[in-house]
């Protein structure tokens, strides 16, 4: 039971991270119908920005941990969203009316470019970092210990999700975003600046991915330039599992994937956990192509 709870917590925090990345995929797919293959790289960049910010404020002599964490969070969200914006501006916007394959190839190219860009600038070796937020919360007389970082991940994700849902459901920006998702042309005719909304979608997705990147850095304490690929594919799996285009679905899919991965590693062995994830993806697509919370896709002639 203790072991089970432990894995549950691990799975939830991992799932929160996948969910945060998956939202970026799902929103972009919902609005322009493309798989933003470079999104995993955006998450990786977020992680690197967080690391560099931490080292920089350490060099400046700030040692109060809460302040450091706040600065890291804000800096990685800010700088990473600029990357998200730029990627869309350079690589996707000119291709909006092109054949379906062109943006995907462009996105794969962007992903390769960003990976090597970081590798060249920051080095190929993995970057270890001593724990910033050490310590555990012990439950049930010490049988289950939850590190503060994992707890913080879950809490921050919850807060962000609530805020984000409000943003989409209550504000005019969210309304414009939903309008574009339904019908870009009509939204444009009604005075919505479609280009701006799409840009903002990328910015929001990148900001959330940056949070995920920072959390991964805090939890595992080691990152390298290659972490984006696998995390990206798994988060995309999460988005598909939840139903592409659905925000709660992305979160739910992320949590499911995280739990499967944690329990699989805990009870079966960590070598095959990626196979488990990909098999889930295949099974979901075969038996329920619209995902858990997705709308059925209508085939138009």
């Amino acid at each position: 039971m203790d072991y089970f709870l432990q894995q549950l917590i691990n799975g939830l925090s991992l799932g929160a991270i996948y969910g945060l990345i998956a939202i970026g995929y799902t929103m972009v797919y919902g609005i322009i119908g493309m798989i933003n293959f470079a999104h995993g790289e955006i998450y990786m960049i977020g992680s690197f920005v967080a690391l560099i910010t931490f080292l920089a404020i350490g060099a400046l002599g700030i040692t109060w941990v809460p302040l450091a964490l706040l600065v890291m969070l804000l800096a990685s969200m800010l700088f990473t969203s600029v990357y998200g914006w730029t990627v869309e501006r350079i690589a996707y916007r000119p291709l909006r009316s092109s054949p379906r394959l062109a943006p995907l190839i462009s996105a794969i190219g962007m992903s390769i470019f960003l990976q090597n860009y970081i590798q060249l600038l920051q080095g190929a070796r993995s970057k270890p970092l001593q724990p910033i937020l050490p310590g555990n919360l012990t439950l049930m007389d010490g049988a289950v210990s939850v590190s503060y970082v994992r707890l913080a991940t879950i809490v921050i994700t919850l807060v962000l999700m609530v805020g984000f849902t409000m943003l989409i459901n209550r504000t005019s920006l969210g309304r414009a975003q939903r309008a574009c998702e339904q019908d870009k042309k009509m939204a444009g005719l009604l005075g919505v600046n479609v280009d701006r909304v799409i840009s903002l979608t990328f910015v929001m997705g990148a900001a959330l991915a940056a949070v995920a990147g920072m959390m991964v850095l805090l939890i595992y304490g080691v990152i390298d330039f290659y972490i984006g690929f696998l995390a990206g594919v798994k988060s995309f799996t999460a988005a598909v599992l939840g139903g592409v285009g659905s925000l709660p679905g992305a979160m739910l899919g992320g949590v499911v994937i995280g739990l499967i991965e944690a329990f699989w590693s805990g009870y079966v062995g960590s070598e095959w956990k990626d196979v488990a994830t990909f098999s889930i993806l295949v099974l979901v697509l075969i038996f329920r192509p619209t995902g858990l919370l997705g709308r059925p896709e209508i085939e138009k002639v």
Partner: peptide, 20 residues
């Protein structure tokens, strides 16, 4: 904004850990 964190600041391996 693009270059300040990633081009302007490089992580380097030092004997004492990561440096910048």
């Amino acid at each position: 904004l693009l270059t300040v964190p990633l081009v302007g600041l490089r992580t380097v391996d030092r004997p004492t850990g990561l440096g910048i």
